[in-house]
């Protein structure tokens, strides 16, 4: 019996295309965390991100021929496109997420209430600012900054040129900086004192 754990994603996909459930299980186990995080960064909704990543993997399982090895793309790069597109579809059907929903995800294990409040506020503001970016700017930021993809890979996923992607990144970071600055988050000592 083949040891699937040591096989590359691309060779596992060949097995998946033959309906091999064990190969599919290895792919899911290997990548689910990464793509769950990617989905969450796109939609800022824990439940929605689970649905997105599940839908994406089931799509791969039901239509494995979607993966075309002759194109030479890495599995993860190709699958980011599936997850990103699903997340964008879901977001378009949904209204904007209130910041209050975003900050509820934190546990109660913080050392003190003050620190917890500060962290919640900071994360809520950051998440709110990112979610308020235009869709393409947010996608570019997520793929390049958070998922660590190269500009070329991110541009391929988004179906734009590298130049256009770089422009989207610059605009996204500029808008975020302005927003965080406006909220006083870029002057750390002063901001922390305000919660103390």
């Amino acid at each position: 019996m083949a040891d699937y754990e040591t096989e590359t994603d691309e060779s596992l996909l060949v097995h998946v295309q033959r309906g091999d459930q064990r190969a599919f299980a290895v792919i899911v186990t290997r990548h689910v965390k990464k793509f769950h995080a990617a989905a969450y960064r796109m939609c800022s909704d824990a439940q929605e991100s689970e649905d997105i990543v599940q839908e994406a993997f089931l799509k791969l399982w039901s239509k494995p021929q979607m993966w075309d090895p002759s194109r030479g793309a890495k599995f993860s790069t190709w699958f980011y496109r599936i997850v990103t597109n699903l997340a964008i579809d879901k977001m378009r059907r949904k209204k904007a997420i209130p910041v209050g929903d975003v900050i509820d995800v934190f546990s109660d294990t913080r050392e003190s209430q003050e620190t917890e409040l500060y962290e919640k506020e900071k994360q809520g503001a950051l998440e709110g600012a990112i979610q308020s970016l235009p869709e393409r700017q947010k996608t570019a930021l997520n793929l390049c900054f958070y998922e660590g993809l190269s500009n070329r890979e991110a541009a391929d996923i988004m179906g734009v040129s590298v130049k256009a992607l770089e422009s989207l990144l610059v605009r996204a970071k500029g808008a975020l900086k302005d927003e965080l600055s406006r909220r006083g988050m870029l002057t750390e000592p002063a901001r922390r004192q305000s919660y103390a």
């Binding site: 459930q21 599919f24 299980a25 899911v28 186990t29 689910v32 965390k33 769950h36 995080a37 969450y40 960064r41 824990a46 689970e50 990543v53 599940q54 993997f57 089931l58 399982w61 995800v105 934190f106 994360q123 950051l126 998440e127 990112i130 958070y146």
Partner: peptide, 18 residues
């Protein structure tokens, strides 16, 4: 930027659903 922990059974759920 914070990302919540993925549910531990998510991979299992996906594999079972397939």
């Amino acid at each position: 930027r914070h990302v919540p922990e993925m549910p531990t059974n998510l991979a299992y759920r996906i594999i079972e659903a397939a």
